[in-house]
């Protein structure tokens, strides 16, 4: 069992995740705009929660889409 790599936010500083930085948050969205699960992102639980909250704030501010690629 390899030693687990610290997740990217813990590795950075473990500080708050900025909901205004849509370019970072973008990386945690699927092509449909859904939040990627931890198993896909490698985030620790704590950081995943921060990321999820940040994404939801960014969505409200129309920095990120709620959904992508949907046409009826």
């Amino acid at each position: 069992m390899p030693i687990r790599k610290p997740c990217r936010f813990c590795a950075r500083d473990g500080g708050p995740v900025d909901y205004k930085d849509d370019r970072v948050l973008e990386k945690f969205l699927s092509d449909r705009g859904k939040i990627l699960p931890r198993r896909a992102t490698g985030n620790c639980a704590k950081c995943q929660r921060k990321v999820a909250l940040a994404i939801k704030r960014a969505r409200y501010l129309a920095l990120l889409p709620y959904i992508r690629g949907y046409t009826d």
């Binding site: 973008e26 992102t41 490698g42």
Partner: peptide
């Protein structure tokens, strides 16, 4: 717009 960024790997590989 924003969609351009998708290319970069969203994630480091999970373990």
């Amino acid at each position: 717009d924003d969609t351009e960024d998708e290319a970069d790997s969203p994630v480091e590989e999970a373990e």
